[in-house]
């Protein structure tokens, strides 16, 4: 009998310890609110693209210092997954690395949700090869299409099929997985149809895997976000893209001024109309637009020019005023 009592008391003790541990930190980080601003409270649920995530996370972090009473949570379900939740009204704001699709729009309408689309930053898609690749100096959009279009599957397997003077060796392709907005965007502008590409390439949702792949494979070719190139400059060779007006290398400048075509894109947040009735959401979005230029730079994206930013602020103001 004694043994049994011991078992039970040990279990209860264990449970108590775990619970105590869990509850001990509920109210640690409470910063003081700035005196001139009204202290807000509430929850703001954000989900969506993993590309936009670093920016939104950073904004949420800064916002917390201003308004510690507002709990902002950010998920990374991907652009498509984020819109699914957004169209059910489960999230207030959706991160997106591409504009909303008609199908997703329809789903929002069905549930009586209207929204506003706000550009928050630019992202360049970089095309990269291995450091030891001596032959590739640039690629034209047509050549990229030749490599990545659906018809290339099982056909374009060697470098000299792209340009005759290039070596008669296999080409190894690396790219983002089909669930990412990055993939959607690339296939849209290069292959002319969203989601259409060859399937026989190494795909990963984790861009670091792509970096690893192309930096260790002399015959590799990859595309992914510019931020990942900038962090791995010593391991990779950047390839300029020619869209008919000369070769342009992606950089903060060429992405911001639009000369790096067609592989630079805006990234967005979408705000739900019902959420925009809440003071804390309005305050958060205004704060977002205010600090996003400096934040984008910090986390490796390209800030949007001031005039376009001003338009977004105006757009959001009108959206809120419409109520």
């Amino acid at each position: 009998m004694k043994r049994k009592t011991n078992t039970i008391s040990t279990l209860i003790l264990g449970a108590a310890v775990v619970l105590g541990l869990a509850s001990c930190g509920g109210n640690t980080e409470k910063n003081e609110t700035t005196a001139d601003e009204k202290a807000l409270s509430g929850d703001i649920k954000i989900d969506g693209s993993s590309t936009v995530y670093p920016i939104t996370e950073a904004v949420a972090e800064e916002f917390r210092a201003e308004q510690p009473g507002v709990n902002v949570t950010v998920g990374v379900s991907g652009t498509g997954g984020g819109f699914k939740k957004f169209s059910r009204g489960e999230t207030a704001i959706s991160d997106a690395s591409r504009p909303i699709k008609d199908k997703e729009k329809a789903a929002c309408e069905e549930n009586g949700i209207s929204f506003v689309e706000l550009e928050v930053a630019y992202d360049g898609l970089a095309v990269l090869v291995n450091k030891e690749n001596t032959w590739v100096d640039h690629l034209t959009v047509e050549e990229l299409k030749k490599i990545w279009e659906p018809a290339a599957q099982g056909v374009i397997m060697k470098w000299n099929q792209i340009r005759k003077e290039w070596p008669n060796e296999e080409i190894h392709l690396f790219g983002p997985g089909v669930a990412s907005g990055t993939y959607d965007y690339f296939t849209d502008v290069i292959n002319g149809e969203e989601g259409a590409s060859r399937g026989d390439y190494t795909a990963s949702e984790d861009d670091n895997v792509l970096v690893q792949g192309v930096s260790t494979d002399k015959l590799g070719l990859a595309f992914f976000g510019l931020a990942y190139y900038e962090e791995n400059k010593d391991k990779l060779k950047l390839v300029g893209v020619d869209s008919g007006t000369g070769v342009v290398l992606p950089s903060q400048e060429t992405v911001a001024n639009g000369s790096y075509k067609p592989l630079s894109r805006p990234i967005f947040i979408y705000v739900n109309n019902k959420a925009a009735e809440k003071e804390e959401v309005v305050s958060f979005v205004n704060f977002y637009l205010e600090i996003v230029p400096s934040i984008s730079k910090e986390v490796g994206y390209v800030p949007i020019p001031n005039d376009i930013l001003a338009k977004q602020v105006e757009k959001f103001k009108n959206f809120v005023a419409k109520k």
Binding site: A22, S23, G25, G26, T28, E29, D47, Y53, T56, E57, A60, E61, R64, N71, V72, T73, V74, G75, V76
Partner: peptide, 12 residues
Amino acid sequence: VGALAYVPFAPS
């Protein structure tokens, strides 16, 4: 199920 990536508060 919907676990998030950025949650700045401990669950209570």
